[in-house]
Design a protein around this nucleic acid. Structure first.
Lengths: 131, 131
DNA sequence: TATTTAATGATAATGCATTATCATTAGCAA
DNA sequence: TTGCTAATGATAATGCATTATCATTAAATA
């Protein structure tokens, strides 16, 4: 359950997550890591994700109605933005905060999740280019 | 696909959703509607939810990593609060807004989702009572 | 380098929400 | 009321992400 050996597959998965700088789906991790280590199995991706999570190196990013994505754990509070076109997810560093007063008397707000949706820079640029 | 007959089951499901005033899981709808129409089948709940959605009478409420909930459609922009203890979901009428400036140049924010988590009034009261 | 055994690859199995099937029931128009 | 057929109940089938299995491979240590 805990990772005891640093395999090429493990290193590739860790590298891919570190360099992506955005949350990735298990399948995306497989695709990217397969470039480094060919013939990698999806089962290996899931096994390593579990190990990395047990070691507190990554966290899962859940968007409503979608499969979990995974990102390197940071200690900075942040949210996410998803592009409606390419479906990629990006980090959002800003947070409005102050949600404690949003609920009526008797309710306590302890945490929150904010997800922005729209068009990313790349998809926006793609459209303005004449095809 | 479109509902053509007003069955007792259909009316019960609609009533349950209307009176709950909060988003309900398919299973919760079955439980509540079964009080009105005994022996109702879960398949009937799903069929009617589909029909109600096709008729634009309800919308699905998706929370990260959870099964869809359903609520009567309103035209007022709102968000949701989930109690961590009873897991019930409540409507939140307030919205901070102004997320357009949260992303860097080139990104366009078109929509957003805000979910608050904490303790609801009922669960809070339950705990403060001596058992 | 040989040995030990954790980790892998390939794929079958699992879990579970949702959908399909089909004989039976019950709206509703005539 | 009758007849037509949409809708239901019961349950099997489906879809799909994730997990288990197991023979094989390759880290790590001596």
């Amino acid at each position: 359950m805990t990772i005891e050996r640093k395999t090429r597959q493990y290193e590739a998965i860790r590298t891919v997550l570190t360099e992506a700088k955005r949350p990735l789906l298990a399948q995306e991790i497989l695709n990217l890591a397969s470039v480094i280590v060919p013939k990698m199995s999806l089962a290996t991706v899931y096994r390593n994700l579990k190990g990395l999570q047990a070691n507190n190196l990554i966290t899962s990013v859940l968007l409503p109605g979608q499969n979990p994505r995974y990102e390197i754990k940071t200690h900075t509070h942040h949210h996410h933005f998803q592009c409606r076109y390419c479906e990629q997810v990006f980090e959002v560093r800003l947070c409005p905060g102050g949600f404690e007063s949003f609920m009526p008397e008797g309710f306590t707000v302890e945490d929150h999740e904010l997800i922005l949706y729209g068009e990313c820079k790349e998809c926006s640029a793609q459209k303005s280019k004449g095809s």
